[in-house]
């Protein structure tokens, strides 16, 4: 899975909970919850979307690392490398 594939997965998971982001430029280091008004249910669904698409187990304690686009990409890349 390339970085491009992972980026597409993250974008897709985000667009599923915040459809308006599908056509937007996402700032790599922007806080996703604040910028796209994600509540805790949205954020959990975002995490579930990433888990379903990649198979990566994401413990709750790691949620803060997935709070930005860049953070989510780095996290998924790291965890896939460990698998």
């Amino acid at each position: 899975m390339t970085e491009q594939d992972l980026r597409a997965i993250v974008r897709q998971a985000l667009a599923k909970v915040a459809p308006e982001t599908a056509a937007m430029e996402i700032e790599a280091d922007g806080p996703l919850r604040e910028e796209y008004d994600l509540d805790s249910m949205d954020f959990l669904n975002f995490i579930i979307g990433l888990h379903k698409a990649t198979g990566v187990e994401i413990p709750e304690t790691d949620y803060p690392r997935l709070g930005t686009l860049a953070g989510a990409l780095a996290y998924l890349e790291e965890r896939r490398g460990q698998a």
Binding site: L44, I47, I48, H51, E60
Partner: peptide, 12 residues
């Protein structure tokens, strides 16, 4: 911790 991602609970 013992629940899978899709089964986790929110404080709500």
């Amino acid at each position: 911790e013992r629940r899978s991602v899709g089964d986790r609970l929110l404080p709500a």
